[in-house]
Amino acid sequence: MKKPEIPHNENERLIELRRLNILDSEQEKDFDDLVELASIICGVPISLVTLVDADRQWFKSKKGVEIDSSPRDISFCGHAINYDDVMVIENTVADKRFFDNPLVTEDPNIRFYAGMPIKSENGFNLGTLCVIDTQPKKLTELQITALKVLGGQASKLIELRDKKNELEIKNEKLESLNQLNTRITSIISHDLKGPINSLRAYMNSNYIDANNPKDLAQLFPLVKNNLNSLNELVENLLEWSNSSNDVNFENIKVKELIFEVCNLFVGNALEKNIDLKCGYLHEDKILADLSMLRFIMRNLINNAIKFTENGEVIVETEKTDDHQIIIKVTDTGVGISKELLERIKLKDKKVSTKGTRNEKGTGLGLQLIREFLSIHKTDLEIESVENEGSTFSFSLPVA
């Protein structure tokens, strides 16, 4: 028996196969109709749409067999993908490549095989549309032509399936962004007006004498807090605006990004006597949208500093067995009460509390973090003990 040769472009071919996300997918009628038609036209009991993986051939659609896959090193289709035309073996026992192949000497006792390569849009042979018989056989020219046409249709179906998946993903992203836009518009209408109205009330108050230093001294902290709140809100909205124009997933060096964001808060941490540590960080790349991930990290670190005084804020990563990177931001701050934690976990609720130095928050950051993480198919985990500290974490796939 001769094992199939490995195509010269095998690595690129396998990347293409995985990109199409078709391996181990559900049964689809369009492919089933193809194998049924191939079986009828060629007059054979077995027909398959096969995809040749690294060490197996997997059957996207099948007629006449029960198994879903078989080893690549004994497969006929492993040979056929090295051709650009139909590969025909009229009598397997008379062919030195296959006469002692287990698929010939044992079930399903192949005696005849013909396979037309299924080519991807980028020109890679992914597998075959093949027909099989338990008796030696010779196809007519018309049957061979029909097999070529059906193989081409299998290629077209895979292309259409890929385009459909891409469109569904884009529609899902668009729907998520539309929902996000609606929620943010609602938040803006309330939160942007709040600090402004508060400032106007202070300024127009009959109880404030602009010529009285004591009145001005009382007014200053209130104005400062409201301006800080407005600044935080505007920054969050600008970040949201930049991120919501499009979602661009790319490979990101998580260690570099965390160092970049941590450096933005060194001064804030020193001012509150906080030891800001970028703990153990993995070198792996993760798959994420850079703008959204930067926003998430900025807000989590900023919040950890806001609710901590004379303590630590630690940013670290953990790699799981299922190829995920968990990013954690832990502080030794005031923590969160059970009651407040329950409110925070109600994702449709916006919660705002003051920091250790009465820093005002808008509650917008946490909502946006959750929205951005939902686009990444993940969620924010929160662990906290009042007066001891909190840990905020989320996971993203290794690229």
Rank of each mutant, 00 (worst) to 15 (best):
I208V: 15
G267N: 15
K347E: 15
A210G: 13
I325S: 04
D322S: 05
N303C: 02
T92A: 12
T320Q: 07
E106K: 06
I89K: 03
K3A: 12
D275M: 09
A80P: 02
T332V: 02
K156S: 09
V149T: 14
K338Q: 14
T320H: 09
K138L: 07
R357L: 09
E16L: 06
H282Y: 11
H79S: 02
L147G: 01
E26I: 09
N303P: 09
N212V: 00
G123D: 09
N212T: 04
E159Y: 03
K60Y: 10
I286Q: 03
G279F: 04
K62H: 09
K63Y: 03
S244Q: 01
E339S: 15
V52K: 05
D209Q: 06
N82L: 04
S241K: 15
G151N: 02
K253D: 13
N181C: 10
D284F: 14
A146R: 12
I336G: 11
L346H: 15
V44A: 00
N122Q: 11
K156Q: 09
V234C: 09
E283H: 12
N273R: 05
R111A: 02
V86D: 05
C130Y: 05
V254E: 08
R97E: 10
E121Y: 13
V49R: 11
E36M: 12
K170D: 06
G127S: 08
N204S: 11
S374P: 10
L341M: 15
K350G: 11
A269S: 14
F394T: 02
N178E: 14
K224V: 04
K306D: 03
L227R: 00
L160C: 02
L17P: 06
V261Q: 00
N197R: 11
F249A: 00
V52P: 08
A146C: 10
G267Y: 14
F265S: 09
S61H: 02
N310M: 05
